[in-house]
């Protein structure tokens, strides 16, 4: 599944990112690399963009940008 398919409060682990996507490259530069755990923090009032948390930092991104990141769903952190 891709990052935009996770629901609010759900977490995932990054499996891979699209090779030729500016948004995925920027997210990787910010530390969203394969293996990174990411949490969907909240949605904007109109459902887009979404806000995600990884490595202790929060970013807002549009759903179409989130589509470039493939994740595996993970259970809640203990």
């Amino acid at each position: 599944m891709t990052l935009n398919q996770l629901r609010v409060g759900q977490a995932g682990r990054v499996l891979s990112v699209a090779p030729d996507s500016p948004s995925a490259t920027l997210l990787a530069a910010l530390g969203l690399l394969p293996g990174t755990r990411v949490l969907i923090e909240r949605l904007a009032p109109l459902g887009d963009p979404i806000s995600i948390r990884f490595n202790g930092q929060e970013f807002s991104l549009r759903r179409q940008d989130a589509r470039e990141v493939v994740v595996q769903r993970e259970g809640p952190e203990r």
């Binding site: 891979s16 990112v17 699209a18 090779p19 030729d20 996507s21 995925a24 490259t25 990787a28 530069a29 530390g31 690399l33 394969p34």
Partner: peptide
């Protein structure tokens, strides 16, 4: 890069990190 197992998109970030 791809053949060497590095996805050229995030490769730079992966290597730097």
């Amino acid at each position: 890069l791809f053949k060497a197992g590095l996805n050229p998109g995030p490769a730079e970030a992966v290597l730097h990190y």
